[in-house]
Design a protein around this nucleic acid. Structure first.
Lengths: 344, 344
DNA sequence: ACTGCGGGCTGAGACGGTTCAACCGCTAGG
DNA sequence: CCTAGCGGTTGAACCGTCTCAGCCCGCAGT
């Protein structure tokens, strides 16, 4: 016999196997309590009826959800897509299901998503929040739902968080250009109030301290896209050749690509006359007209690490151990390609 | 008082408002059955306790889930990322939550994901399956879970499905090149057993019927990536100039970009000597060294439409109306840019 | 005064699992 | 012979919400 909704329940399995529902439950959750023979009978019944455990009911009674909620700003952004992949991979392996939501950088969407997650009693949340709404996260945590902040300043000391070390990334790119013998450098990108922009610039300055005789020209852009990269090229071309930088650090790859196009169009050869390093190592960087050196961020690893921190926090909460919040910064890596190499 | 797990339940709300739990439930689900004054008291209690409905329990009792499962091959692929966005947007608006899973084109992952979804008793599934495993989908449907196939041949008549009209896309691209006066054409891409490849080529041939004097050279590649595009460029360059095609239809943008690079490196000007049209209109197409004409697929719309079909199937199932499965093909659109324009 | 009626509310089952105290039959030990 | 212990199983309580039959009460109609 089956339930009114046509779905098979444990009761049906129990009946067919000639045992009580308690025993069926034990077969699933504590198989070693059940006699081999009985277990086989129950398993056969499950197989025969095609029964699938109702996770909803399990969760209601057992009280521990096996879902994780994840909020990202934009799943169509390759950066977040990779972060999601990394996190998802880890969590599925641990037996969790993942709810994913786009916030579109809108606060109300963010709120709605967190509401959904709360209603579903997710076991934890990975939160790539746009700026301000950390209080919401705090409220979640207060209700016993651990939250890990993704790609955020670890400033909020009462959360675990993972982020990228943009200062180190800026330093890497700039140090590489210096090591290639360049002394007139430029950094292009903006706007300056983005933490990423600020940190990468800071890293550049940091690297420059090792070469006091070098100069750094800062060109600010309003956006980090191809069009602004082209404009930056024009800016450079206006300079008299002897003042013109011989190497440029572009704060992301789109800028770098725009720059490359602008320079090439004007007949300036890359890297012979101007070397370029980008940032992000988007998949197209390697395929640009001149393969682009770039600072690679371990995106999938970032996601996986965030998931791991969340998992750890959940684990400690369950065993009511003490949990120390950790803010991890991952270090980016420089990928050198043709656009910044002096030919020998 | 609150439950042992620290979470507030309807019972607590009822106690504080001085009513029964039944009334609290009515406030939520049938407010018009409740006297205004009582309603306000209950709402105040909810607010004060910060109660959030336990969706898990609701679903168990009410029997209707408000989650949708979605399987994609690779969320990091921009194509699917956009499809997901479109679907998610629609479903959230309808009050559904969305579980997302990457299959990585692996059958076992696909199976695991569908298992999870089944355990969570999702209300429906959006399934971008890699080839063969339609039987799994069939089993789901058989258990009352509607499934809509995404980006699949609508061949399986017993499912709703959405896909792209690749034949039309191929026709569009080729007709455009013909209209620009080209008569020696080439189509590059492969492998030939991908439906997408086959259909786009078929569309190209279809367009050619309108210009019997034109010729079409087919260059096959093993993959649809930049490297193979470069090789195809070499192939073209081996031809004596008077036999060489003056226009190329590349079956995706990565090929087109590789081709563009190969030709440019060899000093062949695009579009003056060889015109190029790509496919997919990836975000980089517009930013290539020569902005690339391309066939754009309405990716987000594809996702939204899939979601809509699923929603519709769910609705009819609930009202036990008859449901006619629909296979929808969306038509792509040609975006003309510099790479295929004769300068005048 | 009695009946009928309807708005407003209550309270007791479900829903499908998990969990745990209790029980059963049986063997080993005293 | 009695008790203790043990592997194996049972059955009922419970998780938080929805639903629905039924109750209470005040009012209109006769």
């Amino acid at each position: 016999m089956v339930g009114r909704r046509g779905s098979v329940s444990m009761k049906d399995v129990a009946a067919l196997a000639g045992v009580s529902v308690g025993t069926v439950s034990n077969v699933l959750n504590s198989p070693d309590l059940v006699a081999e023979q009985t277990r086989l009978r129950v398993e056969a019944a499950i197989e025969k009826l095609g029964w699938v455990r109702n996770e909803t009911a399990r969760q209601l009674r057992a009280g521990d959800s096996r879902s994780i909620g994840m909020v990202v700003m934009d799943i169509a952004n390759p950066f977040f897509a990779d972060v999601v992949r990394g996190a998802e991979e880890f969590l599925y392996q641990k037996g969790y299901s993942v709810y994913i939501g786009n916030s579109d950088q809108r606060l109300d969407r963010e709120a709605t998503l967190l509401d959904h997650f709360q209603q579903h009693r997710v076991r934890g949340v990975l939160f790539a929040s746009i700026g301000a709404s950390v209080e919401r996260a705090a409220r979640l945590r207060q209700r016993g739902i651990p939250v890990v902040l993704v790609d955020r300043a670890a400033g909020a000391a009462d959360f675990c968080s993972v982020g990228m070390d943009d200062i180190e990334g800026g330093r890497l790119a700039t140090a590489h250009l210096l090591s290639q013998g360049h002394r007139r450098l430029a950094v292009i990108g903006g706007p300056g109030d983005l933490t990423q922009v600020r940190d990468r610039r800071r890293g550049a300055n940091f690297a420059l301290q090792a070469a006091p005789e070098a100069s750094l020209l800062v060109i600010s852009t309003e956006l980090l896209d191809v069009a602004w990269g082209r404009r930056a090229a024009d800016d450079l071309l206006l300079l008299p050749e002897r003042e013109r930088p011989t190497a440029v650090f572009a704060l992301n790859d789109l800028l770098a690509i725009g720059l490359l196009q602008g320079l090439t169009l004007a007949g300036v050869r890359v890297p012979e006359e101007i070397a370029i390093v980008g940032y992000d190592d988007i998949s197209f960087a390697a395929a640009a007209a001149v393969p682009l050196s770039s600072v690679r961020q371990p995106r999938a690893e970032l996601g996986a690490l965030a998931a791991e921190l969340l998992f750890e926090e959940i684990r400690t909460a369950e065993s009511s151990e003490h949990h120390e919040h950790r803010g991890v910064r991952m270090t980016p890596e420089l990928v050198v390609r043709q656009s910044s190499l002096i030919k020998s």
